[in-house]
Design a protein around this nucleic acid. Sequence first.
DNA 1: TCTGGGGTCCTAGGACCC
DNA 2: TCTGGGGTCCTAGGACCC
Length: 445
Amino acid sequence: MFGLVDCNNFYVSCERVFQPRLEGRPVVILSNNDGCIISRSAEAKALGLKMGDPYFQVKEQLRREQVQVFSSNYTLYGDMSRRVMHYLGASVPGVEIYSIDEAFLDLGGLEQRLTPYLGNLTDLAQRLRVGVKARTGIPVCVGVAPTKTLAKLANRLAKKDAGLGGVLYLDSGARRAWALGQVPVGDVWGVGRQYAQKLTAAGIDSAADLSRVSEAWARKFLGGVVGARLVRELQGYPCAGLAPSEDGTLHRQSISCSRTFGRPLREQASVLGAVSAFVARAAEKLRRQGDLAHVLTVFVSKNRFGPAADAGSGHSRSAVLTLPVPTSDTRELTARAAQLLARLWEPGAVYVKAGVVMAGLEAPGGQQLGLFGEAAPLAAGAAGEGRSAQMMAALDGLNARFGRGTVQLAAALGPKGGGPVPWQGQAAWRTPAYTTRLEDLMIVK
DNA sequence: TCTGGGGTCCTAGGACCC
DNA sequence: TCTGGGGTCCTAGGACCC
């Protein structure tokens, strides 16, 4: 049996924890660069504001309706997320962190172990909900069902129907059938815009309808094996297990960093500065995960909304490099990224965004084995790697202690003589890092 | 003027190998 | 005339997720 815990309007909820005056009022959080709406309170949703609405398009409405607007504060959200996940991890046998605001729970066999005193899985889910709220201030809903897909569906209903008290357990065939009938096919986990269109055109409107299509049909029209699994999961046959997240962190298979610039850039030096800063950030994440990258990608994008951007595609170009030796050294990665950027560069072009992706991640050590598994005789190289690791550890230590960007490569610095960094974007309404910066600690007088 | 960022998995096709 | 069948790796692209 799976549980799915989902934080309600997570980013808004995080802000509300530290600003109780926001309770009951419409609140939205904006994406990086204050570009789009990415989190909305229930009151904001009721005003018709949509996920992804560009800020400049709804600016007037926000002002008129006195909506409280905030830039995103990922330092705060990340820390709040850790607290929620830690509590969940301490409360049930297995937790898979699915995203910053969602976690799957392993509730297998738990029903049998619950005593009359402890109650059933609904009671357990209810206790978790109350516990998270009491310890972190974050409201959550819980869905419980025999498959992940059904747990997501149950969670969705628990969130929508206030009468359920934030928890829904699909404990019988009858209840599952009822739940499937409640949910439009486009709201099923794994059905996006394209598939929803295809499905409704075929007369499949609800999750219940979708649960009745044949496997062959699902394979043909819903992306092959993915679609087949999706339908099986709706029928109650689990196709995915729980992958517990060790020590409360998420291990990723690729790590990236990308940003839309504060303003369009046409000078290669400026874009190189941005790319260097992105490499530094991504390499930091890479080292925190304890991995080396074998594959490096750099991409640059032109404005995809401009008049020239017909057909929508072709606004982005990327270059990929398989590194001779996997690394997490910012200096090595920056040099390689600069080469890739030079390869991509179109003179005269105007770029609005760039990014780097590190993939082919592996733990140190494994890559040095020779053909027959023996340690390769790379004494000099190994010593070099030791020095590199020491240097990077020192870099990370200083930046952790004195703030991000205290020590960085010259390539990632802004223009000489200070002034605004050309690639840095807007964050006009960012709240303090209440929980992670001593200077930002809330003082209660 | 202004339209996010960071992920996952799967498929298909080509090159190359034995 | 006949035109294998595995396998790998790589790239590009598509769809989805929060």
